[in-house]
Amino acid sequence: MNLSWTQRRKLTGLLFVMPTVAFVTVFFIIPLIMTVYMSFHDWPLFGERAYTGLENYQELSKDRQYLKSLDFTFRYTALVTPPIFILGFILASLVRHNIPYIGIFRTIFFLPVVIGLGVSSLLWTWMLDDRIGIFNKILLDFHLVPKAQLFLGRPNTAMNVIILSVVWKTVGFTMILLLAGLQAIPDELYESAEVDGAGYFRKLFYITLPLMRRTIALALILSVIGSVLSFDQFYIMTRGGPRNSTISIVFWIFNNSFTYFKMGYGAAMSIVLLAILVALTGLQLYVLREKE
């Protein structure tokens, strides 16, 4: 084949993106189309299927647990995001400079990220146990509580301890992202600001945060999507309890699809959730856009 240089260049480019295109097609586009298709059907996990049009979507508004789960998921996201960011930023600031042995601390802070969420959820379940858990042992030994606490058994404490465990698990990842953003800011900017007499907070609000806008946007979007799609921690630590107060939206989709065998209904919920996430991400990108 005789191709001109430009043609070959285009072909090379095409070949480079092909693996990604193939991957996205097989693992995202095709499943997405299938999910949309399924959402218009009464689609049991096994057995006869039937076209039902928009029935699944209409049923959503009558599903009290679906609305409860949406409410719970967004409340959880709103509660878990600030601590992850504030703590992530503090940790990133602490390990920012390349001083001796700093790698040890970076590793320690990042270590929980490497553990699977399922494993960490089990670990926390044991640590929070009322009979053998370390937390109750410490609280009892210091006489901070009169008797062992059922942290995961009470609606008000279950959410809090799950947030605690998730912050521990994910803060390292946010730290790494923010650290990269922090280190990309040239030291000269801080030096000249200091010459001008700027204090810590002035430097933070006029140099650090504005220059980290893109990094923060990325970290925020990843964190919010992760929280909205959370499942493992609730499935393992509380099984949605107590009194079904910790059923996240993905948990409810899982239940409908694989326990109640209503795959079509689960698909409809997934599509609505996707739409919500797209809107939410668009909003975040708009708020955190680079101002010209």
Binding site: G240, N244, N255
Partner: peptide, 22 residues
């Protein structure tokens, strides 16, 4: 049966917990 009684997130257990524990 599973959806009614045995599902950990089903109505049976929720009813028991709300009535008996709460």
């Amino acid at each position: 049966y599973n959806d009614l009684f045995n599902d950990p997130n089903g109505p049976w257990l929720e009813m028991l917990q709300v009535a008996i524990l709460d």
